[in-house]
Every structure is written in C-alpha cells, then in structure tokens.
Amino acid sequence: MTSHHHPHQLLGRSEDELAWFRRRSLMQAAALWMASGGWAAAHAQARSNIVELRGDVLRNGEPLTNQHTVVASDRIETGPGSTAVFSIGDSAFMVRQNSRVALESDTPTAVKVLRVLSGAVASVWGRGTDRQIILPTATAGIRGTGVYAEVFADQGQRGYLCNCYGTVDLTSGSESVVSQSSYHQSFWAEPTPRNGRLLTPAGAINHTDEELEFLAGLVNQRTAWQITGRKGSKDGSGGASPSYSSGPPGSRD
C-alpha cells in the first residue's frame, strides 16, 4: 500500500469515521435544522436539539431518539458505528462511536461540564465562563472555543485534547498550561509522567477542520481559520506556543 499524505493523522480511527459530516442524510438534517431556526429555536424549547443520531445511542441507559431533547445533565453512550450530533444552548457536540460522556450543569440549557469517560467528542462552545471538559487524566477550562477530546482506554486512560481554536486552561495533577490557539494546539494528558511531565505536546490526530466547521455552523459560529482565512501547519503546535507552568493551579497570576 502506498502511503499518501493526509492533512490529519489517525490513531485507532478510520478515514470513514472522520467523514461523518459529509453524509447526505446529515447534510439534509442540518439544512432542515438551520431552516427551522437552528439552536435558537431548540434553545427556546420549540423542538428537539438533536441534529442527527446514527446507530445505537443511549441516554441515561435508555435508547435516544430524534424526538428527545438532550439536556445538560444527561449521560450519552454510543455503540459501534454510532454517532450523536446535538446542540445544547449555544454549544454543539459530536460524540463519536464507542464513547461514553456525561454532561453536568445546574441549568438544563447550558453545559457546564463535559466528562469524557471513554471514546471521543468534538465540541464547539459559545462564549461563557466556568465551562470544563474533564478527562480521566486532565481538566480543561473552556472559554468559547473548539475542542476535540479523546480517551485512549488501551493506553491506561491516556487523555488527548486539541484546542482547535480559542483559549483553554489545561490542568493535570500540579501541572497547568494556558493554551491559546488559532489552529490546533494539541496535548497528551498522561496517566503517569512521561519525561517528568503529565502534560506533553501532541500532534493533531483523529479530527478534521471540516468537523469543527460543521459544528460551529450549527450554532451560528465560525472557526478562527474561517474568520481569518488563514490556516497554520496542522502539526499540533497551534500557531502559538503554549505557556506551561508547574505548581498548584492558581499560583501563576
């Protein structure tokens, strides 16, 4: 087999899986979603906030259907070959196959915490404070951004987080990083220190620009590169260098 260059690297996922947003059924569902008011209408409780379900998806242990509304305290589980695309408030989420996530909030229409227990989630978040993505090995504070997060169970729950654009405060143990990215800044959150560190630089893996653009479009947003018309090198460096610090979080004001 000849190797050919991909704009993204794959680790345990398939090209086909990353092309979910190109399916005609989803495009039709998304067009209908936008035509009938999009997230604002769903937010006003007029109808379901589910854009598309594929395969077997459970909510709080029960089968999830397009007629349901996902609220910010639900647990979502996807089976093999299954995906869930939905918005809650001004944020959009795509849960990949074989994933388990738990949403947490004190209000039904704004996710405060996205816990990725296993598998992977691509997400675009509207601006807001006190929002977090929690992986088994790290916590990420979100401030209006696009983020891809994945948990590698076969590597001891090793966490992966890409700040596709925006600002993310990433913490693991006593280490913290403030990541500011215009184009994919990626990190491993290690279960045990690697070369003395829990948070280490990573390459951009398992997600595409188009996935983030699709999710942003669902909630009337655009990605940083759509706004500037500029992409960097998709090597995980983010087009800027992250500021790492050790010590207790909060000790770096």
Rank of each mutant, 00 (worst) to 15 (best):
H5P: 13
L11S: 15
E15L: 06
E15D: 13
L18V: 07
F21R: 02
R22F: 13
R24I: 06
R24N: 13
A29W: 12
A31R: 12
A35V: 03
S36N: 15
A42W: 03
H43L: 13
R54W: 12
D56A: 15
D56F: 14
L58P: 06
N66R: 10
T69N: 05
V70I: 13
S73P: 04
T78Y: 10
G79V: 05
P80V: 07
G81D: 15
T83Y: 09
A84F: 06
F86C: 08
A92Y: 03
A92F: 01
V95A: 13
R96G: 10
P108G: 08
T109W: 06
A110K: 06
V111E: 02
V113W: 05
V113L: 04
V116C: 00
S118K: 04
W125G: 00
Q132N: 09
T139H: 14
A140Y: 01
A140N: 03
A140P: 00
G141L: 07
I142F: 06
Q155E: 15
G159M: 02
G159V: 00
Y160R: 03
N163S: 13
C164Y: 12
D169F: 10
G173S: 08
S176V: 10
V178Q: 05
Q180I: 04
S186V: 01
G196M: 05
R197V: 10
L198C: 12
P201A: 11
I205Y: 10
D209G: 10
E211Y: 06
E213R: 10
A216Y: 03
V219G: 08
N220M: 10
Q221F: 06
T223Q: 04
I227W: 15
S233F: 11
G236Y: 07
P242S: 02
S243V: 14
S246P: 08
S246F: 14
P248W: 12
